[in-house]
């Protein structure tokens, strides 16, 4: 993590190891310079490092990267020629692979499954290349009436709309049920007091 000698080794501290630990460990807490670094603070849990890497983008990393599908099937020669979705010498038409960084199945499954419900989607699936890296690849093919990118944007917008409906319904029903159950609790309490 550190290339040069950590400066805290030279820091005025009764224990150089703690000095280094505290100064150069993102998961470790702070030290009190006024008190000879003696009052070391602790991270309330120190069992795994840098777990925020699961959801925070690295420096300069973008959330979504994508490229057109240019891979060709080794069986290209034998495939039927005319249909749009079959590979051409320049790759697969109307197909793109989107790489989502710092995302997981929450979004991967949601998008890939939802996309399948549109008529113009020919193929949609995602994979997590390795479970230890927070990223997934989404491959989308369309029938040509819409680009894969616009298909995803449309899909996202529809889901946001659905969630908005869910939210408003949830909030009204919650208030209704809450009032009813509170009234009931009050009535119960009153009845108990009568005895």
């Amino acid at each position: 993590m550190t290339d040069q000698l950590p400066d805290a080794v030279n820091a005025p501290c009764w224990s150089p190891r703690i000095g280094t630990l505290v100064a150069h460990e993102p998961n470790c807490g702070l030290r009190d310079n006024q008190k000879d670094n003696r009052h070391v603070s602790h991270k309330a849990d120190y069992d795994a490092e840098n777990r925020f890497e699961l959801f925070l983008l690295d420096d300069g990393q973008s959330k979504v990267e994508w490229k057109e599908e240019t891979r060709k099937s080794s069986l290209y020669e034998h495939l039927p020629k005319p249909p749009l979705t079959n590979p051409t010498p320049s790759g697969v038409p109307n197909t793109a692979v989107f790489t989502f960084n710092k995302e997981d199945h929450t979004l991967g499954n949601l998008l890939s499954q939802r996309l399948l419900k549109y008529d113009y989607i020919v193929f949609s699936a995602y994979k997590v290349p390795h479970p230890l890296f927070a990223t997934f690849d989404l491959r989308v093919s369309t029938d040509g009436s819409i680009t894969p990118k616009d298909a995803i944007i449309k899909c996202c917008r529809d889901i946001v709309g659905d969630l908005e409906m869910l939210k408003s319904s949830f909030q009204t029903e919650w208030l209704g049920k809450k009032i009813v159950s509170e009234g009931e609790a009050e009535r119960m309490a009153r009845e108990q007091n009568n005895f």
């Binding site: 994508w66 979004l107 998008l111 908005e164």
Partner: peptide
């Protein structure tokens, strides 16, 4: 629900 919406909005914006 809002967090999920924000996630999706971010993807839309980015794309």
């Amino acid at each position: 629900i809002e967090t999920l919406q924000k996630k999706l909005a971010r993807i839309m914006g980015e794309l």
